[in-house]
Design a protein around this nucleic acid. Structure first.
Length: 503
RNA sequence: GGCCGGUUCGUCUAUCGGUUAGGACAGCCCCCUUUCACGGGGCAAAGACGGGUUCGAUUCCCGUACCGGCUACCA
């Protein structure tokens, strides 16, 4: 089934790094759009000028690009509903706020921030609502003349929604079913700020309407303000035009409970942002999955499975498979604790699954970053041999580096514990024998080595670990003789000699 | 505090009223491997509690408890 009228949006505010939860919201939007042949729009909600952070918008685009997600419309990609930055749409919003005031659905409020702050201090549960507004400075309590005077003299003011008293507002959430609120419990949210900018509440409704959004997905933390948005839709554009809402479950911290925050990542030692983010104001650096060595396929796969599954035991999905099987009906209600161990497992699975061709550019880049010049003639062979033992792309440095560079540190202690003079003799003889050995491949080298060991009356097993350490520097890596086969005769002999000299 | 949401192994989850409650991660054990992994096999591990409805509830309803979200001229 496909519906070309499906239009969804992700609407981040450019205030910092792109959080896991944000990426998952993007993903679900994207999957839903592609599934239904619709459009995915990226809108920048930069209505809070005080929280603007330079570079954050570009960073968001980079993260999406890394994940393989391309918006159909955005400030960068354009579109018929441009501009897609709310700050550039500022003049649009006022007319809607004015209309609401004219119709009595909203009102001017002249209370200063300091006055409200004072109120909250004296009564901790203070809310600007259907009760308290009667004793505050607004166009509901002031006379028409006073209001006009204040307005004419440009006294700072906001426009607040006039929440009805004791009415029920309900809507059908695509994930949670019917959710209803009593309007008396909802406060009179600011719609238009004193600086003329809309708040999220007004902007999201106006822009979703103007941009013809059909389905609006956002985190569960937005559920409490839904009645404000529902009412705004009712007043401004009609409920029949309103997008269908879906409030996504939250991604929780691994220990304890509560929303996952970047602090949790720092505290527990894992990334929370998609890519490294350096705050331009504080220079604080937050780790990203990309730089940590995750591959985008795994990152996306892992995120999709946090709160959704296809009903089978299948866990590894390509993005195409996700698109094909995604459905909102299978998105869970409860929040999911983020499990870094499972995230690593996904990455490992993907590294194993990916072809050498797909891995090659990533590995080359990683090796170069560590000043290892990868020899293209053996690189593919090396990748194929070691990828099973790499959880992160960065693991290729350790697992593949010794193929190209001689190990800089040799774990000699592990050799010396069981070393003896006859072994020195054996390896000296071995280098000589190797020089004349022609059948240079793994199995032949192994057979040859074992024969020599037997001849010298030493158990091959006692010699293989030392040989491994001589060639790779430590107790890891693929089969020893396959390594020797790849690095070649000259290098093999050299590494053996070098290590003997250290013993 | 109020409002809203949520509640199956430690974690992510399956279950469209009837199952020995299944899988995966992590953990532990064994096999394979003369390194480390991969791989294979196995063990352990769950329906918050109390009421209903029903021949039968993890599943439907209510209550309680607990957890979370929100409660800004931030999103």
């Amino acid at each position: 089934m496909s519906n070309n009228n499906v239009r969804v949006r992700f609407a981040p505010s450019p205030t910092g790094g792109l959080h896991l939860g944000g990426v998952r919201t993007v993903l679900f939007n994207y999957l839903f759009a592609k599934k239904h042949g619709g459009k995915f729009i990226l809108r920048i909600e930069d209505t809070d000028q005080s929280r603007f952070v330079a570079g954050a918008e570009e960073y968001i685009f980079n993260c999406l690009e890394w994940c393989g997600i391309v918006p159909d419309e955005s400030p960068k990609h354009g579109g018929v509903h441009a501009p897609y930055r709310q700050s550039e749409r500022k003049d649009l919003y006022k007319q809607y706020a004015d209309k609401l005031v004219q119709e009595g659905k909203a009102y001017y409020a002249f209370d200063t921030a300091a006055e409200l702050e004072e109120k909250r201090k004296s009564s901790p549960n203070f809310q600007y609502n259907n009760v308290t507004r009667k004793e505050l400075k607004n166009s509901l309590t002031l006379s028409a003349e006073e209001v006009k005077e204040l307005l004419d003299s440009n006294v700072a003011h906001v426009i607040r929604i006039n929440m009805p008293t004791d009415e029920s507002v309900s809507f059908n959430d695509l994930i949670r079913g019917e959710v209803s609120f009593n309007t008396s419990q909802v406060d009179d949210k600011v719609l238009l700020k004193a600086d003329g900018m809309p708040t999220y509440h007004l902007a999201v409704v106006v822009d979703d309407f103007l941009m013809e959004i059909s389905h609006a997905f956002r985190g569960e933390e937005w559920l409490p303000s839904a009645p404000v948005h529902i009412l705004l839709w009712k007043y401004l554009f009609g409920l029949d035009k309103m997008p269908q809402w879906a409030h996504l479950p939250l991604i929780l911290k691994p220990d304890g409970n509560g929303k996952l925050s970047k602090r949790d990542g720092d505290r527990l030692g894992f990334p929370v942002f998609a890519m490294d983010w350096i705050d331009p104001k504080t220079n604080e650096i937050n780790a990203g999955f990309k730089e940590k060595g995750f591959i985008p396929e795994a990152f996306v796969n892992m995120l999709a499975m946090l709160g959704w599954n296809d009903g089978t035991d299948k866990e590894i999905f390509t993005i195409e498979e996700l698109i094909a099987s995604f459905s909102l009906e299978r998105v869970h209600k409860p929040g999911a604790k983020f499990d870094y161990e499972k995230a690593k497992w996904y990455n490992h699975e993907w590294i194993k699954k990916l072809s050498v061709d797909s891995l090659r550019p990533l590995v080359i880049a990683e090796l170069e970053k560590n000043s290892i010049k990868s020899n293209s003639t053996i690189l593919d062979n090396v990748i194929d041999q070691v990828k099973d033992r790499c959880t992160f792309i960065s693991d290729f440095v350790l697992q593949a580096g010794f193929f190209f560079n001689r190990p800089t540190t040799i774990d000699t202690p592990s050799i010396q514990t069981k070393w003896a003079e006859n072994k020195t003799t054996f390896f000296n003889d071995y280098t000589v024998a190797l020089a004349d050995f022609e059948d240079w491949n793994g199995p032949s080298l192994e057979a040859h080595f074992k024969q020599l060991a037997t001849d010298a009356q030493i158990k091959p097993g006692e010699l293989m670990l030392p040989l491994r350490i001589m060639l790779v520097g430590g107790k890891f890596g693929p089969h020893v003789f396959d390594i020797a086969a790849v690095i070649g005769k000259e290098e093999t002999i050299a590494r053996i000699k070098n290590t003997i000299a250290l013993l």
